[in-house]
């Protein structure tokens, strides 16, 4: 696992069934592009988060393919429908094979 990778997610604590909510996610990651060189002129190998997926109770909200042009500490904001009570799952896939997961449950009235 790359050092110090830490996800942050903001999901409203509660919603009514059928509501549209806004979700924000951020994860600490250098997103090394593979375009940069070190002091000795050697290319620093690419090392990025290449995919981000958000699901609710197993049903997909958004599935993003990331390229090296996504900024350090990738940020996403998007909307989701909350059909009923349940849990959001957020998953980030690292080039090095690591997978980072965060879950958030939401109270639905």
């Amino acid at each position: 696992m790359a050092d110090n990778v830490k996800p942050r997610v903001r999901v409203p604590k509660e919603a009514s069934a059928g509501d549209t909510i806004t979700i924000k996610t951020l994860i600490s990651h250098t997103m090394e592009s593979g375009q940069r060189k070190d002091k000795d002129g050697n290319v620093i190998p690419r090392s990025i988060i290449n995919r981000f997926v958000a699901d609710f109770n197993g049903e997909n909200v958004i599935d993003v393919t990331l390229e090296p042009a996504i900024s350090t500490n990738p940020y996403f904001e998007f909307d989701a429908i909350v059909p009923g009570p349940g849990e959001f799952t957020f998953t980030w896939y690292d080039d090095d094979g690591s997978v980072y997961t965060e879950t958030k449950s939401i109270d639905v009235s």
Binding site: I62, T65, E67, S71, F76, D79
Partner: peptide, 20 residues
């Protein structure tokens, strides 16, 4: 830069991010 695939629970088909 990125490809956004929207799932059935995505009502607005919109997204924001930060790019280089």
């Amino acid at each position: 830069v990125a490809t956004f695939n929207f799932g059935p629970l995505n009502p607005t088909r919109s997204a924001s991010t930060r790019i280089r």
